[in-house]
């Protein structure tokens, strides 16, 4: 997927005219696990809604697999089944009487018959780790975390090539959060789908993704690997973001004279790094 000089202006021509996206150039390779982070109102949600054609860029073009999605005759429905988008609080979109039927909604819209759709639904529900006993229950009887998994399965069942999730862990407890993120990582590993994760938790992002896009006031501020992005932790703070806590720890250790690498971004990496230094001291 390629975004070429994408601009999006809210309320064009009125007094409230505002740039929500400013000159966005991005290239997203197949199979990447990408984190998009940014402060509230930085344009991350607007950005991802462009990626499956829900919002139309005021100027600029978006290419998917080399095809211009704004070209005449390009099927937005087809794009939407290839680029799956899971909104914030996706459990608010559930509506069917049973979980299975709800997950089937997407595949049925793609034109699959009932059996094929149910097959897809089973597969999707299994991959988000929902117990089979629940499939015939009403989605409204589930807990918050389970509902969210059903909603994510609803998009997964459409077999998207790219899966975009807007804050999939908002409002979940730490256990539910880790479970969902682990399952996403597994999907990425096993099915090789491209995943774009929107979040403002640096810890989540640092642990899973291989590339971070930092948004600020509608433009891309940094676009690099987590290690390189967190090197700018001071600049991140000025736009209301922060690096993972271990980054701060490592920087402080370094200042106190311990020769640790400041590149560790996850707790595990930091642990190894500190152990290494301690052994050197012994």
């Amino acid at each position: 997927m390629k975004l070429d000089k994408v601009n999006y202006i809210y309320g064009q021509g009125s007094a409230y005219e505002m740039y929500a996206l400013k000159d966005i150039n991005l290239e997203i390779q197949d199979g990447q696990f990408i984190g998009v982070i940014g402060h509230t109102g930085s344009g991350k949600s607007t950005l991802i809604q462009h990626m499956n054609g829900l919002l139309r860029a005021t100027t600029g073009t978006i290419y998917y697999n080399g095809e211009d999605i704004y070209a005449e005759g390009y099927s937005m429905r087809k794009l939407r089944s290839k680029v799956g988008l899971v909104f914030q609080y996706p459990e608010h979109q559930l509506f069917e009487t049973t979980i299975l039927a709800d997950v089937c909604f997407g595949p049925m819209n793609q034109g699959l018959d009932k059996n094929a759709a149910e097959l897809r639904a089973f597969e999707a529900l299994r991959s988000v780790g929902l117990s089979e006993k629940l499939y015939e229950q009403s989605p409204f009887d589930l807990s918050g975390g389970q509902k969210r998994r059903v909603a994510i399965a609803g998009v997964l069942a459409m077999k998207p090539e790219v899966l975009i999730l807007d804050e999939p862990t908002a409002g979940l407890d730490p256990k539910g959060r880790d479970e969902i993120l682990d399952q996403l990582a597994k999907l990425h590993r096993e099915n090789h789908i491209t995943i774009i994760l929107v979040s403002h938790s640096m810890e989540d992002v640092a642990k899973y993704v291989e590339r971070i896009i930092v948004m600020n006031q509608g433009s891309v501020m940094y676009d690099d690997s987590p290690k390189n992005v967190f090197r700018y932790y001071k600049e991140l703070e000025t736009v209301g973001l922060a690096a993972p806590q271990v980054t701060y720890l490592m920087h402080e250790l370094r200042e106190k004279g311990f020769p640790v690498s400041i590149e560790a971004t996850t707790v595990e990496e930091a642990k190894q790094e500190i152990l290494k230094v301690m052994r050197m001291h012994d």
Partner: peptide, 13 residues
């Protein structure tokens, strides 16, 4: 607006 977008993303028309 939000729900409409979410269902459109799931192929609703």
């Amino acid at each position: 607006d939000k729900i409409m977008k979410a269902q459109t993303a799931r192929g609703a028309n």
